[in-house]
Amino acid sequence: MEISNVFNRSKNLFPPILKDCSQRLLVNPLTWVLVVIMLLPCFLGLWFYYEFSDERQFEEVDGEKVYYDNNGGLLHVELREAFLNLSSLFIVKFIGVLLAIMFSSELINEEFNRKTMQILRTTPIMSLEIIFYRYVTGVLCMFGILASSSIIMYIVIMLGSGIHGIIEELEILWLVIKIVLFESIAFLGIFCLISAYFERPFLLGIVYWIIWEMIVSGTQYQQITVSHYLESILFDGLKDIGWSVTAEDYGLTKIVNNEVVNIATEPITAMLVMIGIGLGTVVWGARGLGNRQF
């Protein structure tokens, strides 16, 4: 009964929250500072393109230009690695996390600062509804920004390998987009939870990121971190594309009885864990919000 009420209310609650929150996130100058930082490697890509585009060798295959480097290797194969390294290091592990911390802080903590949360708490909606629609808006915005930036970065970096190279390596782009989607789902949930319980979510978020996602994720207890599941999706995705990668390359191993054991999680399991983290933390955060006193 209650679930059907929540569902019926969603058509009235979600659109205004989506409109207001997305506007707040997208007009926030900090969002655009992070976007600019995220796209800095693109300038490097453009410089590389103009500097070396004349030195490229090519042959025409079925009317398409296929570019080669000086050693005769396919240029798009070289550039795809550059794209993958830059996007996984820069977009996923750095800007993505900062964006999640900033968005959750704007969506939840700022409502406390503006005291609009007190007004929301006097309206006849559940705490879960207050936090969930904000979370969904945050995920959509974060995913939108990260995915668009990934696409721009991909095009700029792969530009050197021509249209052929851009089309040839699209699978890498989809893989990165898949990773930023699940990153948005998991990290935003965690940081919304922190925002619902604590008054300084920015600081705590960064402490969590450094201690949990950077230090613990490199140890044998990495399966309790989001980074492990993101790396597992990436590792499995690359294997599917046909890259020659090992679990060790992505730190997805641990030593058991002096033997290195592959601990990469199956991609479906990893995705379900991420969704579980996202939803679980939102429910937990709603509980915190509901019990919070003013």
Binding site: N12, P15, P16, D20, R114, K115, I119, T122, T123, P124
Partner: peptide, 29 residues
């Protein structure tokens, strides 16, 4: 509830603000 303090979404118009909270009361747009 009319609070003592300001509790606004400053980027909204007065009309949007009042409508926004009415939507929270499950009114159609």
């Amino acid at each position: 509830f009319v609070p003592e303090f300001d509790c606004f979404y400053e980027h909204m118009s007065g009309l949007d603000y009042v409508s926004y909270f009415l939507r929270m009361h499950n009114y159609e747009k």
